[in-house]
Structures are given as structure tokens and as C-alpha cells.
Write a protein that binds this DNA or RNA. Structure first.
Length: 707
DNA sequence: GAGCACTGC
């Protein structure tokens, strides 16, 4: 196979099917070097002009850099707009400096006199690193005037005026302070990413602003910062707020499109990588966007094999896989720059789109696909599916080529295919289970959740389904014309968990197993406690066999956690058993947080000892809507929708066929699989929700007992 | 007997 690819690579201009063809595309506009040409959409542009009046008062080099940023020209206009108006939308391109500078401008202009500035970020690392940078620019100690708040870490004090935080953290704060009274300004940054948390915050800050105005309290200024697109949409939502545009500093990127549609994008990627590697001068790494671990691992093998067949004068090629499930010591490899005479090729998922920035990338290869979550509101079934990227996403990927110098982006699809892509990705809030969101809104005091002022409304089905789930869990009650938050629901909202797991914790007291349950819930909140490399799979499974419990995966996870503690988290032990020690540490953090919340609620800590049935009975209290029953032919069906499901092959119950199980979640791949499965007694299910099981019959039991 | 994009509280 490899010689044939090699040959086709050398056949310049050949129309062989093995060759990927590209043609050039003019790039002066959208990806140019900061000229004013843009995609026009009817919106009046307010380009910012230079401010002549700001005096530089310090000579520190970190500070000096601030005045060279493109955004500096717009300082006066930005301050004026925020002072004059309630809300403003700022569209800033990559490299404009908006995230570090705007909060400082507003602080320098004493907008923080009446309250702090909150600047939200979708990711923890961003909130932390930006706060560090701004503290340095302002020559202050991190945690004093400038600080950050993310889960498990609060580096702020009473002095803090500029506070970077995750969007989820501000949403949590809103539950205890719906008017966000400690803030004078809320900046929702990276708004174009449309995370569930930012989307909910849009409504929360808009309502807080209105309420404060009505109550004659100090005004709340709202700043929405985003990349291009959607600015009009944000503007309409915030009562026609003005949109200010800031130019970025992006190096020019040359666009290349496939001449014809590619049948196999992994193969097309392989050919393109080898072609680039052999034809392009040394210097400049290659970043390839793929959809998942499997694809990355198989392409990594192909590239490695192929590179060995290169001509002797060809540079060495270093292949670096990059995906979230990869243990961090392996992830580090991509950040080490390639020694001279070698070229790096990074095979990444969309983790490299926004979450991490890899230095040295000059060439981007975009397969045009991404694995995304799809959700069926009626059945509550979640699944991951390979789908085409949106135009916005394709542009984001392209931009990764021009971070340091000019670059080239190869799209493994035609320009016509690009034109057919969706403008933007559907906001997550429209394609996920919103039970958690609705419970949080109720806890914020918004009773009419069904008519909440969403920027983009979730489907009606999803709203109804989520409300129904919350009612069945006992979190809400339907009153005459609205929904009422029950005391149980109020407690559930205090946990950083999905409602069903919060219910599990709150139910643990009556079965004397809160200690075990808190650990199990923490374990269910992380992914992949264990790591199974492809080439050592059988060995990994064999050494972990001793932890397997026939009661279910939750008990198996608990066994692993206990074993880890009994060796005090010994590193070698973790490696021997293929346990991801970083994940266990995360479990310990979550466990500690859950414990603290329980202490505040006066939930007693107790252990059921050997009575492990109590643990499973407690799990049934929250997971009863995720029950499945064995059918006479040996397969399973969910009790809720009679959906055919199977126990996941990695489950400790695989092949055991208990009559009734509850599962933590479903994943649809070749089949619909239940993950984190636990055996239960049908009577526990009925005890958990008698009315629910009058509607959803458990077939193996005589139905007469209910008549 | 098959395989889990990415965040976040």
C-alpha cells in the first residue's frame, strides 16, 4: 500500500484517485492581515479610531505591550459606550487583546467604583491564565485587585475588582444572588461558543439588569464579547445594543480546497500530510483535525509507517496524537517543539480548536468533520455522531495556522461543500438534556421556566421532558398555572451534579451509606478512571479483574478507589493497574466538595459496611428512570421507552444478565449501550417512584398488585 | 464481545 501512495505523491498533476488535489483561493478578506474588508451582513460597523489622550505612566515592558495592541485604538470609544449604554456587543478577532484589556480599561476609568467586573470564560484554564497575565500587566498580586474563581479554586479577596471566572461559576453565584449585586459590569466573553452556561447567563444578566433598574439599584452593565457572526443576534436580544468591531492580529493564511469530493478523509489526510512533509521546506508543523481517538490512533500508525518509506534526504516526522482522554504526560509531547531537522504532525480532535494552542503550527489540515452530541428530546437518548463542521468551526480551525507566521490551510473538501455547511453550530442548549438548566432557573426564583427569555429556545419537547423528569424526581410540583420548587429540589440545585445524581446523594441518608454514595457519585462525575492502551488491552483488563464486582460498575469503581487509597495513591501501583491517577485526584476534589455541601445540609455521614445492597438501593432512588429489564430473548429494554439496549462490553455486568438494572447513561454507537450499570431489585424501583411505575410497568412482575 | 468529540459546576 505504501509504495503506491508514494508513487502517486510523486505524480505531479496526475488524476490518480490516490492523489488529493487542491486549488488556491483568494484570501485577502476574512483571513487577511487586518484590512477592513469583511463579510457584510447589513450591520452598521463602528470601527474604532485611535485615542490620543491616554498617557503612559510606566515603563515596564509588560505594560508597554498593552499600548501596541490593536484594541488600544478603541479604548475611549469602548469606555464611552459602556458608560452611556446598558449593554454593548464587542466583536474582537483573535489577537485583538479584548479579553485582557477591556476589563482593565473599565477598571482604569473607575467603572468598578460601585462593584467588581466579572469576566466569564468557557474554560478553567483560560480564566486562570488570563487572570495571571492581567495581574502581571497591572503589577498587582494575583488574588488582590485581579483574581479568578473556578471550581475548587477561588483566588479572590475583598479587594478584587477584576475577576475572571468560568461561566458555570457565575451561574452558581447567581443562585445565591440572582441580581448579581456584587458586580457593576458583567462581561460574557467567548459568547460565540454558546456554552449552555453562557446561554443561561444571557437570560440571567438581562433579567438582573432590568430588575436592578426597576428597583432603583445601581445599574448592571453588560458587555458581550464574541468573534464574528451572531453579533446582530446578540444585539437584537440586548435591545439593539451597539456592536463595536475590533480588528485582530492574524497572519495571512492561504486557503486550499480539494478539487473533488473525498470519499475517505482519513486517507486524504494521510496523502496530504505526506505530500506537505516532502514538498514544503523545513520549519512549520502540521495540525490535522480528526473526529476521535480511534481515527487518530489508526492514522498515527499509517503516518509512522509511511514516513519510513520516504526518501533518505527527507526530514524525520514526529507523530503526536492529541485528544482529551490521552493521559497528560502523553499530551505534553505536542508542546515540545520539534528539534531542527524534524517536523511534527499533530493529529488532534477539536480539543485543538479552542482548548489548547499548539506552538509552531504552519499547516492545518481540516477533514471537515467533528463528533458531536445529538439528543432526542422525547426519549432522552444522547448519542455521539460524526457530522460535518459548521463554517464558523472551519474558520476557527483555519485560524490555527496563522498564530505565529503566515500559514496554509488545506480543506479536505471542495469549496462547494464548504458553501453548503451550516453558518454556525447549533447551540448546545438546543441539543442536550436541560433538566439541570431548568432546575437552576427554578432555584434562581424564575418560576415560569417554560417561558424564560432564552437567546435561542430549546425545543418544546426538551422543555416538557425535562420538567417531567424533575417532577418525577420530586424536585418540582406542578401548581395551578406554574411550577413550584420543592424543598428537595432546592437542595438538589445546590449540588454541582445532574439532578438524578443529586437525588441519589440526598437519598443516601436513609440507607446509611452516604460515605459510599458520595464517593460513587464523584466517581461517576469523571470520565475514564482507567486507561486501556490499544496494544496492552488484555493485560490491562486482567490486572484490574480483581476489582470487578458482580453487583455492578459502581461497586467496581468503589473497589478501585478503595484500593487506590489503601496504597496511598502509589504511582507505580497506578501504572501497573492502568489507573489514571490524575482522574483519581479529580475524584477526591469532587468528593470533598460534595461532602462540604452535605455538611451544610446536615446530612449525616455513615457507612453501610458490608450491606452493599443499601448502596444499590440508594442508586435506584435517583436512577429509576434509567431502568432496563431483561427480555425473554436475552436482550434488554428500557422501562421508560421500551428502547432496546445492551450492557456495554466494558461493564462488569457484561454477560451476567441480571433481570433488572439501572444505568448512569446511554451511548449509541453500533448499538445502544448502557454504561455504569448496576443490578437492582424491582421492588426498589417501585419504592423509589410508585406512580412512575404504575405508568411504566415492570413486566416480569405480576401487574395485579397495582389493580 | 465492542470501542467513549469537548467543556463545566
Amino acid at each position: 500500500m505504501y509504495p503506491r501512495i508514494k508513487r502517486s505523491l510523486s505524480e505531479e498533476g496526475s488524476s490518480s484517485a490516490k492523489r488529493t488535489h487542491f486549488r488556491s483561493f483568494s484570501v485577502s478578506g476574512a483571513f487577511g492581515n487586518g484590512t477592513s474588508q469583511r463579510e457584510t451582513n447589513g450591520q452598521t460597523k463602528h470601527h474604532l479610531s485611535a485615542n490620543q489622550h491616554y498617557q503612559q505612566t510606566t515603563h515596564s515592558s509588560t505594560r508597554k505591550q498593552r499600548f501596541n495592541l490593536p484594541i488600544y485604538a478603541g479604548r475611549t470609544a469602548i469606555i464611552a459606550e459602556v458608560r452611556m449604554k446598558e449593554s454593548v456587543i464587542i466583536v474582537g478577532e483573535t489577537g485583538s487583546g479584548k479579553t485582557t484589556q477591556i476589563p482593565q480599561y473599565l477598571h482604569e476609568d473607575r467603572l468598578t467604583k460601585l462593584g467588581a467586573i466579572a469576566c466569564t470564560q468557557p474554560r478553567r484554564v483560560a480564566a486562570i491564565s488570563i487572570a495571571q497575565r492581567v495581574a502581571k500587566e497591572m503589577s498587582v498580586q494575583l488574588g488582590e485587585e485581579v483574581g479568578y474563581t473556578v471550581r475548587f479554586e477561588d483566588v479572590t479577596s475583598e479587594k478584587t475588582r477584576v475577576k475572571y471566572m468560568t461561566d458555570g461559576m457565575l451561574l452558581r453565584e447567581a443562585i445565591s444572588d440572582p441580581l448579581l449585586l456584587r458586580y457593576a459590569v458583567v462581561i460574557l466573553d467567548e459568547a460565540h461558543e454558546r456554552t449552555v452556561h453562557t446561554d443561561v447567563l444571557f437570560g440571567v444578566v438581562k433579567s438582573a439588569q432590568k430588575m436592578r433598574k426597576e428597583n432603583n439599584q445601581k445599574p448592571l452593565k453588560i458587555v458581550v464579547m464574541s468573534a464574528t457572526l451572531e453579533a446582530d443576534h446578540f444585539s437584537r436580544y440586548f435591545n439593539g445594543a451597539k456592536v463595536l468591531y475590533i480588528e485582530g492580529r492574524q497572519h495571512p493564511i492561504q486557503m486550499m480546497y480539494a478539487v473533488e469530493q473525498q470519499k475517505d478523509y482519513v486517507h486524504a489526510a494521510l496523502v496530504t500530510i505526506m505530500q506537505l512533509h516532502q514538498e514544503m521546506p523545513p520549519g512549520g508543523d502540521i495540525l490535522v483535525f480528526l473526529t476521535g481517538q480511534d481515527e487518530i490512533e489508526s492514522l498515527a500508525k499509517l503516518v509512522t509507517d509511511c514516513a519510513q518509506h520516504c526518501t533518505p534526504d527527507c526530514m524525520e516526522l514526529l507523530v503526536c496524537p492529541m485528544f482529551a482522554a490521552l493521559p497528560s504526560q502523553h499530551q505534553m509531547k505536542v508542546f515540545i517543539s520539534a528539534p531542527s531537522g524534524k517536523r511534527k504532525v499533530i493529529l488532534a480532535t477539536n480539543i485543538a480548536e479552542t482548548s489548547i494552542t499548539i506552538p509552531g503550527v504552519k499547516y492545518v489540515i481540516d477533514t471537515g468533520f467533528v463528533k458531536g452530541k445529538a439528543f432526542h428530546p422525547k426519549t432522552g437518548l444522547d448519542m455521539l455522531r460524526v457530522q460535518p463542521v459548521s463554517k464558523a468551526q472551519a474558520r476557527q480551525r483555519t485560524g490555527r495556522a496563522g498564530r505565529e507566521t503566515s500559514g496554509v490551510c488545506y480543506r479536505l473538501y471542495t469549496e462547494e461543500q464548504f458553501d453548503e455547511l451550516k453558518q454556525t453550530t447549533i447551540p448546545e442548549i438546543q441539543r442536550c438534556n436541560i433538566a439541570t438548566v431548568l432546575l437552576q432557573l427554578m432555584a434562581l426564583g424564575i418560576t415560569d421556566v417554560a417561558n424564560f427569555d432564552f437567546l435561542d429556545r430549546p425545543p418544546q419537547d426538551a422543555i416538557e421532558n425535562a420538567l417531567e423528569q424533575l417532577i418525577v424526581l420530586g424536585a418540582l410540583r406542578k401548581a395551578s398555572d406554574c411550577y413550584e420548587l420543592m424543598p428537595l429540589g432546592r437542595q438538589m440545585a445546590d449540588f454541582p451534579l445532574e439532578p438524578r445524581l443529586a437525588k441519589v446523594i440526598l437519598s443516601s441518608q436513609q440507607f446509611n451509606c452516604s460515605e459510599e454514595i458520595i464517593t460513587i457519585v464523584a466517581l461517576l462525575s469523571v470520565d475514564s478512571l482507567t486507561y486501556t492502551p490499544q496494544n496492552k488491552r488484555d493485560h490491562a483488563i486482567a490486572v484490574r479483574k480483581k476489582f470487578t464486582s458482580s453487583e455492578g460498575d459502581q461497586m467496581t469503581l468503589l473497589n478501585i478507589y478503595r484500593a487506590y487509597n489503601s496504597v496511598n495513591g502509589n504511582k507505580e501501583w497506578c501504572q501497573q493497574h492502568f489507573i489514571n491517577s490524575q482522574t483519581v485526584k479529580q475524584v477526591m476534589d469532587i468528593r470533598k466538595q460534595l461532602r462540604e455541601i452535605c455538611v451544610r445540609m446536615n446530612i449525616p455521614f455513615n457507612s453501610c459496611g458490608k450491606e452493599t445492597a443499601n448502596i444499590r438501593q440508594t442508586l435506584a432512588r435517583g436512577l429509576f428512570m434509567n431502568a432496563a429489564e431483561l427480555q425473554p430473548e436475552g436482550t434488554y429494554q428500557t422501562v421508560s421507552h421500551r428502547q432496546p439496549v445492551a450492557i456495554h462490553p466494558t461493564s462488569s455486568l457484561f454477560g451476567l444478565k441480571p433481570q433488572f438494572v439501572v444505568y448512569n447513561d446511554l451511548v449509541h454507537t453500533s448499538k445502544c449501550y448502557m454504561r455504569d450499570v448496576c443490578c437492582v431489585d424491582p421492588s426498589w424501583l417501585r419504592d423509589a417512584a410508585p406512580n412512575y411505575f404504575k405508568e411504566h410497568r415492570l413486566h416480569s412482575q405480576p401487574t395485579a398488585i397495582y389493580s
